[in-house]
Design a binder for these strands. Structure first.
Lengths: 331, 331
DNA sequence: GGCACAATGGAAACCGCTTTCCAAGGGGGA
DNA sequence: TCCCCCTTGGAAAGCGGTTTCCATTGTGCC
């Protein structure tokens, strides 16, 4: 590959001058030389070696994003938001998918840290295991000690800037809205108990029901994805009139399960989700959910990560209950 | 950040030895020193600086993948397939989204090339503009001249390894299948005319109809995304009995448009798509489509890119027509 | 016991670029 | 006209690793 030295030689200038012309610098270079360098670079098809630049400058122009599952619209939206924000700053994005394995998440932080990325974004729920979280914290701390920046979308458990959706509050508000429709027998497709997001939403929902003096909902655990919702829906008690899936993809799975079983939604059972992923608009019946501004959250997380803050800032993001056809008024 | 030199000092060995212990080498290091180095690295929390490694080794462990839109399930599936394949090889992935701007695609190739990524994957349709394609080819050629590898999912227009879905053949077969159901008046939600994938599918479909002696379909151009399908569906002539959207997300948009307009699918109009994106299973009515093994294609493209081939290899991928409820037999 | 050779450790060159530090040239003010 | 300061170009020292090339030591064999 053609190097800066080749360009400098061809232009008959020093390495320093070539560097100043081509790769940005505070220093001025005379018009004549500048033109010669640019022409030489063009003729030779020079492309700066970013690895070398990164090494010399001590900081690169790439950021890392770690998500659980890129094919899940929730993560896709978050990642897209972050990537758009990154693009406006001239940053490249390295994406890692953990496929929901917390160990993978730690490994990615280590790898991204080794890459000396400018910032890493951890997108997605934490797990309840303090041991795992501890190791992740350690890895992050080491990375940040070396000047790295980090932010997280999810729970404020890592000691870094965090965009934290109000999972409990959102779920509670949803519960009140559904109860307001006359429902009393609920089930929660609760996801995995150790997933903090899932647990929070479940707890928020159940807590609100309790405050209203309603019976405790049936808790149906399962995976946090579409198939998890599909499968969990089939374990719901027959007397339940309203099912809350702790995220939209699970709710979509549940809708499918009901459709297959010939159970009508919302006539026979009401269904609600959480997140308001964009693809919901194409599902029938339209799904009641709690809207989260996913793209903005992703973008915001990147901003936070890049900002020069002293102490980690935690930003709460409220969810907004959106009632749609998948729930009906009872009685 | 702690450097290899710190580790070497702490362990009381040379830089060379430390490097050999920690970052892999053909050379053996005695057990005693090896242990000392490992302990030192562990105590200090050493993480190799990949930028430096990349520079010294002349090749990094990152691949680049450029997609049009990561929130589109089609690209998400392809990217996920490629990322899984990359992970098994210990490669990291840098993702760029062009948001369907061909210039962005060229820019990303330049940037990734500057990053000295091991390989770049261009995922998604080419555009018909020979000028743009030419510039992209140039950029790719330069990258490959420097030892970079490249592959493409889409049309074989770039002179690189290509995984090429059989768009024309798939669409043609779909047309025959639909005609076999008794339809004669077709419309094609054709996407943008300059998008080769869209144009090929459209041409394949229309060509098959012509061979069957059926009237030419109504061609309705528009954007290649869900909203494009939604909008295009409303411009379809009333006498059309069967609508082919050149990709699934457009078909999903069309289904939504019909639902909103009170047009029943398939009773009033049949609808078919292309790709068989995984999310289809949750739409009603279930969409007839042409199945493409998206994840495999992504993985395969990565393999091709990494393989040591002399001449670019082009691999055709056949599509399989999948008839589902969204189409009905006529008469 | 002596020698060739394999195994192992270290010094130093190098990867490609940035940036400090100098040197030299040029312009403006006194 | 002289001096000082501001510009501009270049030499060279890193950035943090890898790897070649030696030097040294230990081993097997005659």
């Amino acid at each position: 590959m053609v190097t800066l030295e080749d360009v400098a030689k061809q232009a008959g200038v020093s390495l320093a001058t070539a560097s100043r012309v081509l790769n940005g610098s505070t220093r001025q270079v005379g018009a004549a030389l500048r033109a010669r360098v640019e022409q030489a670079a063009d003729e030779l098809g020079y492309r700066a070696n970013i690895a070398a630049q990164t090494l010399a400058r001590g900081a690169g122009n790439v950021i890392g994003i770690v998500v659980h599952d890129l094919t899940d619209p929730y993560f896709a939206a978050l990642a897209d938001g972050a990537m758009r924000a990154a693009a406006t700053q001239g940053l490249l994005v390295m994406v890692g998918t953990t496929h929901r394995d917390p160990e993978q998440e730690i490994a990615y932080v280590a790898t991204l840290s080794a890459q000396r990325v400018r910032a890493v974004l951890l997108v997605g729920s934490r797990v309840a295991d303090p041991q795992v979280t501890g190791r992740l914290r350690d890895e992050l701390a080491r990375y940040r000690a070396g000047g790295g920046r980090a932010a997280c979308v999810g729970q404020d458990l890592l000691g870094v800037d965090t965009v934290a959706p109000a999972n409990r509050a959102g779920a509670a508000e949803l519960a009140r809205a559904l109860a307001g429709l006359g429902h009393t027998r609920f089930a929660v497709l609760a996801g995995p108990p150790h997933l903090v997001t899932a647990a929070d939403r479940c707890a928020g929902f159940a807590g609100a029901l309790e405050e209203l003096g309603l019976p405790a909902p049936q808790i149906v655990p399962g995976p946090f994805d579409r198939d998890g919702g599909h499968e969990a829906a089939r374990r719901v008690d027959p007397d339940v009139t309203c099912v809350f899936a702790v995220n939209d993809v699970m709710a979509v799975g549940a809708l499918a399960a009901y459709r297959e079983a010939g159970v009508r939604v919302p006539e026979d059972v009401s269904v609600a989700g959480f997140d308001d992923i964009v693809t919901l608009r194409d599902h029938v019946p339209a799904l009641t959910t709690v809207r989260l501004p996913l793209k903005d959250m992703g973008a915001r997380a990147l901003e936070l990560a890049l900002a020069e803050d002293v102490a980690p800032v935690v930003e709460q993001v409220a969810g907004e209950v959106v009632l749609r056809e998948s729930v009906r008024r009872l009685g």
